[in-house]
Design a protein around this nucleic acid. Structure first.
Ligand SMILES: [Zn+2]
Ligand SMILES: [Zn+2]
Ligand SMILES: [Zn+2]
Ligand SMILES: [Zn+2]
Lengths: 143, 143
DNA sequence: TACAAAACGTTATATTGTATCTTTTCGTCA
DNA sequence: TGACGAAAAGATACAATATAACGTTTTGTA
C-alpha cells in the first residue's frame, strides 16, 4: 500500500468520524509514513522545517496528539518516538518488536497476548484502558 | 517484609555477585522502597538533597543504572519513573499494572504472558532481550 | 455576514537525561 | 604498609523531550 493510498485511507477514516485531517496533520502523517521507522517529535519537526519557516514544538506535538487519538499513529514508549499504524481502521492491541541493532519496528497485534493481559489485570481488580507492550531485541536480519 | 529486611537482602544479593551496593546506591534504593510508589529521578534527587548538600542528576542516574542492572529496581517507561522490585532474587518478566487515578503500581510476573510474547517474537524472527509490559488502567480501590 | 469553536503560531519554560572531566574511595599486591 | 589502578562519586554544562500560556487565524455554521 502506497504512501498516497494510506493518506487517502486516513482522510476517509477521519472524515467518516467528523475529524479533520488538516494539511498540517496530514503532513506529519506523511513524514511518518515515508520514514518507515519511528521518528522522535523533534525529528519530525526538523523534516517540517525543511523548505519553509521554522515551526515550534507544539505544532508537532498537537498534530501527534490528534493522530494518536485517531489511531493513525502509535507512540513507542521505550523510544520516545512515533510510528504510523498499518491498519488504523479499528482499535487493536498495539504490540511492538523493536530491533536494537537496526532500529526497525514491527507492529504485531496478537489478540491472545492482549486477552491474557486483560485476564491478568482483571484478576488484580484492574480495569485496563491502555496496554503498552514493547519487546526490545534483535531482528532476523541483524543476527 | 520490612524496609531493613529488603535492604539487607539487596546487600546479600550484591555481595554474592561481587557487586558493590554502596551507601549512595543503598540510599537510592531505600528511598524507592519507602516511597511505595514510583518515583522520578528528580524526585529521588530531591529526597537525597534533604539534609545535606545538593547532589547532581548524574549521581541519581548512576545509582539507578546500577540498581537496574542488579534487578533491584524496575523502570516504568510510561511514567519515566522507577520502582523497587519485590523479589529481586532472580530475573523475571516484569509486568506492571499502573493506576492512572491513584498512581499505585502492581508488579505481576505472569510467565504465560512472557511465554506468549516470546513465541510471537520468535515467529517474527526476533530474539528478545527485554520485554516491556505496562497496563494503564484503574485499580479496584479507585472504582 | 456575524459568531463560536477549532486549529495554529509564538514565546517561554518545565522535565528528563547525558557528556565530560576531576576528585575521591576502594581493593590489590609489591 | 604504601603505591597503584579501577571503580565510584562530585561537579559543570548541556542535550533531548515535552508542555504551559496566550494571542491570532481559520473554519464551519446560523
Ligand atoms: Zn496499529
Ligand atoms: Zn535489525
Ligand atoms: Zn521485579
Ligand atoms: Zn487506584
Amino acid at each position: 500500500m502506497s504512501t498516497e493510498e494510506r493518506l487517502e485511507r486516513a482522510m476517509r477514516l477521519c472524515t467518516g468520524r467528523g475529524a479533520r485531517l488538516t494539511p498540517q496533520r496530514a503532513r506529519v502523517l506523511r513524514i511518518l509514513i515515508e520514514a518507515e521507522r519511528p521518528l522522535g517529535a523533534y525529528e519530525i519537526l526538523a523534516e517540517m522545517a525543511g523548505g519553509q519557516r521554522a515551526l515550534a514544538p507544539p505544532t508537532v506535538y498537537r498534530a501527534l496528539e490528534f493522530l494518536l487519538a485517531q489511531g493513525l499513529v502509535h507512540r513507542l514508549e521505550t523510544l520516545n518516538a512515533f510510528i504510523d499504524c498499518r491498519h488504523p481502521e479499528r482499535p487493536h492491541p498495539a504490540q511492538f518488536l523493536i530491533c536494537s541493532a537496526c532500529g526497525r519496528v514491527v507492529e504485531i497485534d496478537d489478540e491472545a497476548i492482549a486477552a491474557r493481559l486483560l485476564d491478568a489485570a482483571s484478576q488484580s481488580g484492574f480495569a485496563p484502558s491502555r496496554k503498552v507492550v514493547e519487546v526490545i531485541g534483535v531482528c532476523e536480519g541483524c543476527r
